[in-house]
Design a protein around this nucleic acid. Structure first.
Length: 815
RNA sequence: GCGAGGGUGGCGGAAUCGGCAGACGCGCUGGACUUAGGAUCCAGUGGGGCAACCCAUGGGGGUUCAACUCCCCCCCUUCGCACCA
């Protein structure tokens, strides 16, 4: 027999599907919908097996739900803005726009060869002004509602290139291009107040099924902690210092306080300090210590005494004020009280700088003399050295002291989040221009909505030097103030690309809407996304920003729902050479070669069969042959079914029916319970193995065989759509297999007459018997005793106990 | 360091609730067909043993008639967070 000629067949159906528009989504308010979405591709990326995996998973789900009668939305688009386009442009002397659109062409072609069931009419391209104008629109809505503000914030700055660097462009503290030492420069940047939504974002009750670890990561990222703000007086300055602590019970043990180098009181302290020169030297030294996570991790804790003291509000004792490079201005109040006896970090710092240690919670195993302490005691105990409060358990004391401070107006209960506001300013060209105008007379003026979109000028010189490239484009920069009509300048920063991806799933719902970002009615119908599929690497930022966006738009009454993604499937990465497959790692495997030699259906089966979706997959082409053989076996079987000549014995009919119905049930369960496509495919393989034998032995009636095969064709269709469509038509059908209903298992074939029961002797399997289903314990024991492999064990022994699990196992305990 | 996941044949991976460990596939071995086989089909395939059997789910202990599955200790590994006061 000829091999399966995939190439012509796959192309034929791709063309036919596209022409007949079977994937076009339409708004049908009375029909139950299902929105399947895979995270859209970044246009700088090169298609690789990671993408193939992602989109294939989505496609199986979409096709499965179509066949289950849902109105499907399964869109695709491109995450098209961002730094790589700009870097490529500088390097290759092209324009980011040309480069991006060229890439989109390529990706689109590649996606089409994969035969995914996308509704292409809804394609979204984020660098299209028709898309990003709504970024600007939302920015203005957020602005109007007090959710946008501007503040000074440090950025990585290369003094040689005179440009801002992203964290990944800082290598060992140096600029990636010229290697100069990177500085921290304070820039005025735009922020969105995501912190206002910290509480709402901690509420996951609107989410149905997300991986637990993603929720945990988001919770940790938001980082809610309960604590107390305590007020320390600074008599020399006649000012007060507020510190945040989660351990107010240790307040009597505070032996110094530490300020962040960027704390607002530092300036005032310097002026009064007799150690001014030294402190200034220290500040200069720590100023450029990088802010990247990597560097902070390895950073040595350092500090300096300012020469000024603060007063501990509980006992009036003066304690020294220090400045430390490890105290973050962004968290709490930017100042801490240090309790070396009960905080390991403080303990180490105190040891280093010979600062006093004072024990205030009794460790039952230790003496309370500080000299004998080798590490901080962070556990529970009763208060000591705490004046009138001695003897109280510290857990109770937390409340007591906080109340006492509150009464004296020296402190209060408070909640801190580690979540920071979202900085959306990027000193880059290839992004959405921020719709703000600076007027000498009127100050900061938001662009009126009617003037949107503010489009990116095409003519720009990208050098990689200097600040925002848009500053050097006069026709963009110069504008008229919408308030006073005078000359003004535009904001030249562009938006973070997370802005683009925070709402693209809403745009898909009504992609052709002209006068507004989306149609409320249609968005409310399609949303939320029923099944979102993407990599775990977006567990925090993208998913959190999207949730935030939807919550704000819900508050502003644009939407009637509160969560964007009902169910989330985080598929594992495709690994090669020990690292995630990506263009930047240079380890991508282009699906093209495999498609050319084996076809798309084989590739799909192969990648789905290799592992369950959530597991990381080490790339290996071993096994592709297995998928290819399976496709060919199916093709050969189809031929055998069509040319089958019936004989008079139909003894295999029931068996064939049982097999297909059990397969239907198993595959349905595998898909709906956990998207375990690997086991679903294994079931289908078992089915074909069985059916080959049936056909070979001619045990089946033609009618049964054909019926069984048609059911199988439908079950396999979501996994291998092209070959199944072909087989469906070869069977004489005129409609698409995807307009057919997913088969339901016929329950009469799911139950067996007999079951095989394992017989254990003292817990070890010694034999098996076949007994009618639902046999009684007695009957099973009798059969077991008659079974030679079992009776051998029973000679000269007594059964002292037996355990019978219906239709599964009988355990005989003998002596 | 903290938090979460994972460790099963030569390999990828199966195993609803504690109930027959290794489904399915790759690879390998043998055979058939063939001028040929890197195609296809059939059989075998966790390790040891001629066999009866014994040993096996990272290691050690425990609970149980019964443990990959539950409990305790340890080792390894992946991911996330990392001075969050």
């Amino acid at each position: 027999m000829e091999k399966y000629q995939f190439s012509g067949i796959e192309k034929k159906w791709q063309k036919q599907w596209e022409e007949s528009g079977i994937y076009r989504a339409s708004f049908l308010p009375d029909k139950k919908k299902f929105y399947v979405l895979e995270m859209f591709p970044y246009t700088s990326a090169q298609m690789h097996m990671g993408h193939v995996r992602n989109y294939t998973i989505g496609d199986v789900i979409a096709r499965f739900f179509v066949m289950n009668g849902f109105n499907i939305l399964h869109p695709i688009g491109y995450d098209a803005f961002g730094m790589p386009a700009e870097n490529a442009a500088i390097k290759q002397k092209t324009h980011p726009k040309d480069w991006t659109y060229k890439n989109i062409e390529t990706i689109r072609e590649q996606l089409k060869t994969l035969g995914i069931s996308y509704c292409w009419e809804r394609e979204v391209i984020t660098c299209d002004p028709e898309y990003y104008r709504w970024n600007q629109y939302f920015f203005l809505q957020f602005y109007k509602n007090g959710l946008v503000y501007k503040k000074l914030s440090p950025a990585n700055w290369c003094p040689a290139c005179k440009t801002v660097l992203a964290n990944e462009q800082v290598i060992d503290g140096g600029c990636w291009r010229c290697n100069s030492e990177v500085e921290q420069k304070e820039l005025s940047q735009w922020f969105i107040k995501i912190t206002d939504y910290a509480e709402k974002l901690l509420d996951f009750s609107g989410i149905k099924d997300w991986p637990e670890r993603v929720i945990t990561m988001q919770k940790n990222w938001i980082g809610k902690s309960y604590g107390t703000e305590v007020c320390f007086a600074i008599p020399d300055l006649d000012k007060e210092l507020i510190v945040f602590t989660t351990r107010p019970d240790t307040l009597f043990g505070a032996t110094y306080v530490v300020l962040s180098p960027r704390h607002p009181l530092v300036q005032g302290i310097l002026e009064k300090s007799r150690l001014k020169a030294e402190v200034e030297r220290f500040l200069l030294k720590v100023k450029n210590q990088a802010l990247t996570a990597e560097d902070t991790a390895n950073m040595e804790k350092e500090g300096i005494y300012t020469g000024i003291n603060a007063i501990n509000p509980v006992n009036g004792e003066p304690i020294p004020i220090w400045i430390g490079n490890y105290v973050l201005m962004e968290y709490g109040t930017g100042a801490i009280m240090a309790v070396p006896a009960h905080d390991q970090r403080d303990f180490e710092f105190a040891q280093k700088y010979k600062l006093p240690v004072k024990v205030v919670i009794k460790n039952p195993d230790w003496s309370i003399t500080p000299e004998q302490i080798e590490s901080a005691y962070e556990g529970e105990g009763v208060m000591v050295n705490s004046g009138e409060y001695n003897g109280i358990p510290n857990t109770e004391f937390m409340e007591i002291i906080t109340e006492a401070l509150t009464k004296k107006n020296l402190g209060k209960k408070t909640i801190c989040y580690s979540l920071r506001d979202w900085c959306i300013s990027r000193q880059r060209y290839w992004g959405t221009p921020i719709p703000i105008i600076y007027c000498n007379k009127c100050g900061i003026v938001p662009v009126p909505e009617k003037d949107l979109p503010i489009t990116l000028p095409y003519n720009v010189r990208l050098t990689g030097h200097g600040t925002s490239p848009l500053k050097s484009v006069p026709e963009f920069l110069r504008c008229i103030c919408p308030e006073c009509g005078g000359e003004a300048e535009r904001e030249t920063d562009t938006m973070d690309t997370f802005m683009d991806s925070s709402w693209y799933f809403l745009r898909y719902a009504t992609a052709d809407t002209q006068d507004k970002p989306f149609d409320k009615k249609e968005v409310n119908y399609w949303m939320p996304v029923n099944q979102y599929i993407g990599g775990i690497e977006h567990a925090i930022l993208h998913l959190l920003y999207s949730r935030f966006f939807v919550k704000v738009l819900n508050d502003l009454e644009y939407l009637d729902f509160k969560e964007p993604f009902e169910n989330l499937l985080c598929q594992g990465m495709v690994i090669k050479d020990g690292t995630k497959m990506s263009k930047s790692k240079g380890n991508v495997v282009d699906p093209k070669d495999i498609i050319n030699s084996y076809g798309v259906d084989t590739l799909r089966l192969f990648i789905l069969f290799a592992a369950p979706p959530e597991i990381d997959l080490e790339w290996s082409e071993k096994g592709i042959e297995g998928a290819w053989r399976f496709i060919n076996r199916v093709w050969a079987l189809n031929d055998s079914v069509l040319s089958y000549k019936e004989t008079k014995t139909h003894t295999g009919d029931v068996d064939a029916e049982k097999n297909i119905n059990k397969t239907i049930k198993a595959v349905t369960d595998d898909i709906t319970k956990a998207f375990h496509f690997n086991t679903a495919i294994a079931r289908m393989m078992e089915f074909t193995n069985h059916l080959s034998r049936v056909i070979e032995r001619k045990e089946c009636s033609k009618k049964t065989l054909e019926g069984v095969w048609l059911k199988f064709t439908r079950v396999m269709a979501p996994f291998a759509p092209h070959i199944c469509e072909e087989m469906w038509r070869l069977a004489g059908k005129t409609n698409s297999v995807f307009s057919e209903k997913w088969p339901e298992p016929d329950t009469q074939y799911l139950v067996d007459k007999n079951s095989v029961i394992a017989i254990q002797i003292n817990g070890k399997v010694r034999g098996r018997i076949t007994a009618p289903v639902n046999s009684t314990e007695k009957e099973v024991i009798k059969l077991a005793e008659e079974e030679p492999s079992i009776s051998r064990w029973l000679q000269d022994k007594t059964i002292i106990k037996h355990i019978y699990v219906q239709d599964k196992v009988l355990n005989l305990i003998i002596k």
